[in-house]
Amino acid sequence: MMLGMLSVVPGLGEIAAAADMALYIYQGDYTNAALAATMFVPGGAVLALGAGAKGLRELSTFARAGAKDLGAAVEGSRVLRGLDRAGQTVHEVVSAAKAKVSGWVRGGEKAASDLADVDQWRVSGSVPESGRTISSGYTQAQLRGIVGEEAQGVADRGLGRIDSQITSAQWGAVGKERWRIWQYRGSIVHEETLAALQHRLGRDFVTYSSNNGIDFTFGGIHQIELTAAGSVGRHTRAPRSIPIDQIATYSWVK
Protein backbone atom coordinates (compact mmCIF):
# COMPACT_ATOMS: atom_id res chain seq x y z
CA MET A 1 0.00 0.00 0.00
CA MET A 2 2.73 2.42 0.93
CA LEU A 3 4.60 1.75 -2.29
CA GLY A 4 1.45 2.28 -4.25
CA MET A 5 0.88 5.62 -2.59
CA LEU A 6 4.44 6.68 -3.34
CA SER A 7 4.06 5.63 -6.91
CA VAL A 8 1.35 8.10 -7.68
CA VAL A 9 3.35 11.03 -6.30
CA PRO A 10 5.21 12.77 -9.12
CA GLY A 11 8.92 12.17 -8.83
CA LEU A 12 8.56 9.37 -6.37
CA GLY A 13 7.27 6.88 -8.88
CA GLU A 14 10.70 5.59 -9.81
CA ILE A 15 11.71 5.12 -6.22
CA ALA A 16 8.53 3.21 -5.63
CA ALA A 17 9.07 1.19 -8.78
CA ALA A 18 12.61 0.38 -7.68
CA ALA A 19 11.36 -0.77 -4.34
CA ASP A 20 8.65 -2.64 -6.14
CA MET A 21 11.20 -4.50 -8.20
CA ALA A 22 13.23 -5.28 -5.12
CA LEU A 23 10.13 -6.63 -3.45
CA TYR A 24 9.41 -8.86 -6.40
CA ILE A 25 12.92 -10.19 -6.37
CA TYR A 26 12.68 -10.75 -2.66
CA GLN A 27 9.48 -12.70 -3.21
CA GLY A 28 10.93 -14.67 -6.07
CA ASP A 29 8.65 -13.26 -8.75
CA TYR A 30 11.20 -12.55 -11.42
CA THR A 31 8.92 -11.83 -14.30
CA ASN A 32 7.29 -8.99 -12.39
CA ALA A 33 10.68 -7.89 -11.19
CA ALA A 34 11.78 -7.61 -14.79
CA LEU A 35 8.67 -5.66 -15.65
CA ALA A 36 9.16 -3.33 -12.71
CA ALA A 37 12.72 -2.73 -13.88
CA THR A 38 11.50 -1.56 -17.26
CA MET A 39 9.51 1.15 -15.53
CA PHE A 40 12.63 3.07 -14.59
CA VAL A 41 13.01 4.23 -18.14
CA PRO A 42 10.20 6.23 -19.73
CA GLY A 43 8.79 4.02 -22.41
CA GLY A 44 10.96 1.23 -21.16
CA ALA A 45 8.20 -1.28 -21.40
CA VAL A 46 7.50 -0.22 -24.94
CA LEU A 47 11.14 -0.67 -25.72
CA ALA A 48 11.08 -4.01 -24.04
CA LEU A 49 8.12 -5.09 -26.07
CA GLY A 50 9.49 -3.49 -29.18
CA ALA A 51 12.86 -5.10 -28.72
CA GLY A 52 11.03 -8.31 -28.36
CA ALA A 53 10.73 -11.01 -25.82
CA LYS A 54 14.47 -11.40 -25.92
CA GLY A 55 14.93 -8.09 -24.16
CA LEU A 56 12.54 -8.98 -21.43
CA ARG A 57 13.98 -12.43 -21.20
CA GLU A 58 17.41 -11.02 -20.60
CA LEU A 59 16.08 -8.58 -18.10
CA SER A 60 14.22 -11.34 -16.39
CA THR A 61 17.33 -13.47 -16.42
CA PHE A 62 19.18 -10.92 -14.40
CA ALA A 63 16.25 -10.70 -12.04
CA ARG A 64 16.04 -14.45 -11.88
CA ALA A 65 19.64 -14.54 -10.88
CA GLY A 66 18.30 -13.24 -7.64
CA ALA A 67 19.47 -10.83 -5.03
CA LYS A 68 21.41 -11.56 -1.90
CA ASP A 69 19.26 -9.18 -0.07
CA LEU A 70 16.90 -6.30 -0.53
CA GLY A 71 19.71 -3.79 -0.40
CA ALA A 72 21.43 -5.35 -3.37
CA ALA A 73 18.25 -5.16 -5.35
CA VAL A 74 17.81 -1.49 -4.60
CA GLU A 75 21.45 -0.89 -5.46
CA GLY A 76 20.75 -2.52 -8.81
CA SER A 77 17.84 -0.27 -9.39
CA ARG A 78 20.04 2.78 -8.84
CA VAL A 79 22.08 1.72 -11.80
CA LEU A 80 18.98 1.55 -13.93
CA ARG A 81 17.80 4.95 -12.80
CA GLY A 82 21.15 6.49 -13.61
CA LEU A 83 21.02 5.58 -17.26
CA ASP A 84 20.46 8.08 -20.02
CA ARG A 85 16.73 7.76 -20.41
CA ALA A 86 16.18 9.04 -23.86
CA GLY A 87 18.00 6.67 -26.07
CA GLN A 88 18.52 3.56 -24.04
CA THR A 89 17.31 0.31 -25.35
CA VAL A 90 16.27 -2.42 -23.10
CA HIS A 91 19.33 -4.37 -24.12
CA GLU A 92 21.53 -1.59 -22.78
CA VAL A 93 19.54 -1.48 -19.63
CA VAL A 94 20.00 -5.17 -19.31
CA SER A 95 23.73 -4.96 -19.94
CA ALA A 96 24.24 -2.27 -17.34
CA ALA A 97 22.14 -4.09 -14.85
CA LYS A 98 23.82 -7.39 -15.52
CA ALA A 99 27.23 -5.83 -14.98
CA LYS A 100 26.18 -4.49 -11.62
CA VAL A 101 24.37 -7.51 -10.36
CA SER A 102 26.49 -10.24 -11.85
CA GLY A 103 27.27 -11.54 -8.42
CA TRP A 104 23.69 -12.06 -7.46
CA VAL A 105 22.64 -15.54 -6.52
CA ARG A 106 20.89 -17.92 -8.86
CA GLY A 107 17.18 -18.22 -8.94
CA GLY A 108 14.83 -21.05 -9.53
CA GLU A 109 13.72 -22.95 -12.56
CA LYS A 110 10.08 -22.12 -12.86
CA ALA A 111 10.69 -18.64 -14.19
CA ALA A 112 11.15 -20.12 -17.63
CA SER A 113 7.43 -20.75 -17.84
CA ASP A 114 6.81 -17.15 -16.83
CA LEU A 115 8.87 -16.07 -19.78
CA ALA A 116 6.66 -18.00 -22.14
CA ASP A 117 3.94 -15.58 -21.12
CA VAL A 118 6.23 -12.68 -21.82
CA ASP A 119 6.70 -13.99 -25.33
CA GLN A 120 2.98 -13.92 -25.88
CA TRP A 121 2.73 -10.24 -25.12
CA ARG A 122 5.03 -9.49 -27.95
CA VAL A 123 3.70 -12.01 -30.41
CA SER A 124 0.16 -10.68 -30.20
CA GLY A 125 1.25 -7.09 -30.50
CA SER A 126 -1.85 -6.00 -28.73
CA VAL A 127 -0.04 -4.34 -25.90
CA PRO A 128 1.71 -1.61 -27.88
CA GLU A 129 -1.33 -1.37 -30.14
CA SER A 130 -3.59 -0.30 -27.33
CA GLY A 131 -1.11 2.31 -26.20
CA ARG A 132 -2.37 2.10 -22.68
CA THR A 133 -1.37 -1.23 -21.34
CA ILE A 134 1.92 -2.04 -19.75
CA SER A 135 3.53 0.81 -21.61
CA SER A 136 1.67 3.27 -19.42
CA GLY A 137 4.37 2.57 -16.90
CA TYR A 138 2.27 1.31 -14.02
CA THR A 139 3.66 -1.25 -11.69
CA GLN A 140 1.65 -3.75 -9.74
CA ALA A 141 2.18 -1.68 -6.62
CA GLN A 142 1.01 1.48 -8.33
CA LEU A 143 -2.11 -0.19 -9.63
CA ARG A 144 -2.82 -1.66 -6.24
CA GLY A 145 -2.61 1.84 -4.82
CA ILE A 146 -4.87 3.26 -7.51
CA VAL A 147 -7.50 0.57 -7.03
CA GLY A 148 -7.50 1.10 -3.28
CA GLU A 149 -7.71 4.85 -3.74
CA GLU A 150 -10.67 4.68 -6.12
CA ALA A 151 -12.49 2.10 -4.03
CA GLN A 152 -12.00 4.21 -0.93
CA GLY A 153 -13.43 7.15 -2.83
CA VAL A 154 -16.56 5.10 -3.45
CA ALA A 155 -16.77 3.89 0.14
CA ASP A 156 -16.24 7.41 1.45
CA ARG A 157 -19.55 8.46 -0.07
CA GLY A 158 -21.12 6.63 2.81
CA LEU A 159 -23.37 3.66 3.29
CA GLY A 160 -26.50 5.71 2.62
CA ARG A 161 -25.31 6.49 -0.88
CA ILE A 162 -24.26 2.91 -1.47
CA ASP A 163 -27.49 1.51 -0.08
CA SER A 164 -29.48 3.71 -2.46
CA GLN A 165 -28.17 1.46 -5.23
CA ILE A 166 -29.39 -1.76 -3.68
CA THR A 167 -32.33 -3.02 -5.68
CA SER A 168 -35.72 -4.32 -4.61
CA ALA A 169 -34.70 -7.92 -5.26
CA GLN A 170 -31.58 -7.45 -3.21
CA TRP A 171 -33.48 -5.90 -0.30
CA GLY A 172 -35.81 -8.86 -0.53
CA ALA A 173 -32.84 -11.20 -0.13
CA VAL A 174 -31.46 -9.13 2.75
CA GLY A 175 -34.80 -9.55 4.48
CA LYS A 176 -34.19 -13.28 4.47
CA GLU A 177 -30.43 -13.29 5.08
CA ARG A 178 -29.16 -10.08 6.59
CA TRP A 179 -25.49 -10.78 5.97
CA ARG A 180 -26.19 -10.31 2.28
CA ILE A 181 -26.28 -6.58 2.70
CA TRP A 182 -22.50 -6.60 2.94
CA GLN A 183 -22.26 -8.76 -0.15
CA TYR A 184 -24.34 -6.25 -2.10
CA ARG A 185 -22.52 -3.26 -0.69
CA GLY A 186 -19.26 -4.88 -1.70
CA SER A 187 -20.58 -5.52 -5.22
CA ILE A 188 -21.57 -1.88 -5.57
CA VAL A 189 -18.10 -0.74 -4.47
CA HIS A 190 -16.60 -3.06 -7.07
CA GLU A 191 -18.89 -1.83 -9.85
CA GLU A 192 -18.34 1.82 -8.99
CA THR A 193 -14.61 1.26 -8.70
CA LEU A 194 -14.56 -0.30 -12.15
CA ALA A 195 -16.29 2.78 -13.53
CA ALA A 196 -13.78 5.04 -11.78
CA LEU A 197 -10.84 2.98 -13.03
CA GLN A 198 -12.10 2.98 -16.59
CA HIS A 199 -12.56 6.72 -16.34
CA ARG A 200 -9.03 7.16 -15.03
CA LEU A 201 -7.12 4.55 -17.00
CA GLY A 202 -9.20 3.69 -20.05
CA ARG A 203 -11.67 0.99 -20.97
CA ASP A 204 -9.02 -0.82 -22.96
CA PHE A 205 -6.74 -1.01 -19.96
CA VAL A 206 -8.90 -2.19 -17.11
CA THR A 207 -11.61 -4.76 -16.95
CA TYR A 208 -13.25 -7.10 -14.57
CA SER A 209 -11.14 -10.18 -14.62
CA SER A 210 -12.18 -13.65 -15.40
CA ASN A 211 -8.71 -15.07 -14.88
CA ASN A 212 -8.32 -16.92 -11.61
CA GLY A 213 -11.36 -15.14 -10.24
CA ILE A 214 -9.37 -12.03 -9.36
CA ASP A 215 -11.40 -8.84 -9.65
CA PHE A 216 -9.55 -6.53 -12.01
CA THR A 217 -7.12 -7.07 -14.83
CA PHE A 218 -4.92 -4.22 -16.05
CA GLY A 219 -3.30 -4.18 -19.40
CA GLY A 220 -4.21 -7.83 -19.71
CA ILE A 221 -1.41 -8.63 -17.30
CA HIS A 222 -1.66 -7.21 -13.80
CA GLN A 223 -4.39 -8.57 -11.60
CA ILE A 224 -5.70 -6.92 -8.47
CA GLU A 225 -8.21 -8.27 -6.01
CA LEU A 226 -10.31 -5.72 -4.15
CA THR A 227 -11.77 -6.35 -0.74
CA ALA A 228 -12.73 -4.62 2.46
CA ALA A 229 -9.83 -4.25 4.85
CA GLY A 230 -11.37 -6.68 7.29
CA SER A 231 -11.64 -9.44 4.73
CA VAL A 232 -8.03 -9.72 3.57
CA GLY A 233 -7.46 -12.93 5.50
CA ARG A 234 -10.21 -14.70 3.65
CA HIS A 235 -8.42 -13.95 0.40
CA THR A 236 -4.88 -14.81 1.41
CA ARG A 237 -5.77 -18.13 2.97
CA ALA A 238 -6.42 -21.30 0.98
CA PRO A 239 -8.16 -22.07 -1.21
CA ARG A 240 -7.80 -18.62 -2.78
CA SER A 241 -4.27 -17.94 -1.56
CA ILE A 242 -3.95 -14.59 -3.28
CA PRO A 243 -0.58 -12.94 -2.60
CA ILE A 244 -0.93 -9.93 -0.35
CA ASP A 245 0.63 -7.59 -2.91
CA GLN A 246 -2.21 -8.37 -5.31
CA ILE A 247 -4.86 -7.22 -2.87
CA ALA A 248 -6.16 -3.66 -2.66
CA THR A 249 -8.36 -2.68 0.24
CA TYR A 250 -10.86 -0.08 1.30
CA SER A 251 -12.50 0.68 4.62
CA TRP A 252 -16.15 1.27 5.24
CA VAL A 253 -17.20 4.67 6.50
CA LYS A 254 -20.06 4.22 8.90
Binding site: D117, S124, V127, Q223
Partner: peptide, 18 residues
Protein backbone atom coordinates in the same frame (compact mmCIF):
# COMPACT_ATOMS: atom_id res chain seq x y z
CA UNK B 1 18.04 -16.80 1.70
CA UNK B 2 15.77 -19.31 0.06
CA UNK B 3 14.40 -18.06 -3.23
CA UNK B 4 10.98 -19.29 -4.19
CA UNK B 5 9.99 -18.83 -7.79
CA UNK B 6 6.31 -18.63 -8.51
CA UNK B 7 4.15 -17.33 -11.29
CA UNK B 8 1.27 -15.28 -9.97
CA UNK B 9 -0.09 -14.12 -13.25
CA UNK B 10 -2.29 -16.02 -15.59
CA UNK B 11 -1.76 -15.77 -19.29
CA UNK B 12 -1.80 -12.16 -20.44
CA UNK B 13 -5.11 -11.06 -21.87
CA UNK B 14 -5.27 -9.33 -25.20
CA UNK B 15 -7.51 -6.51 -26.37
CA UNK B 16 -9.14 -6.43 -29.77
CA UNK B 17 -9.86 -2.85 -30.70
CA UNK B 18 -12.58 -1.86 -33.12
Amino acid sequence: MEIRVTSRQGKPRQVQRV
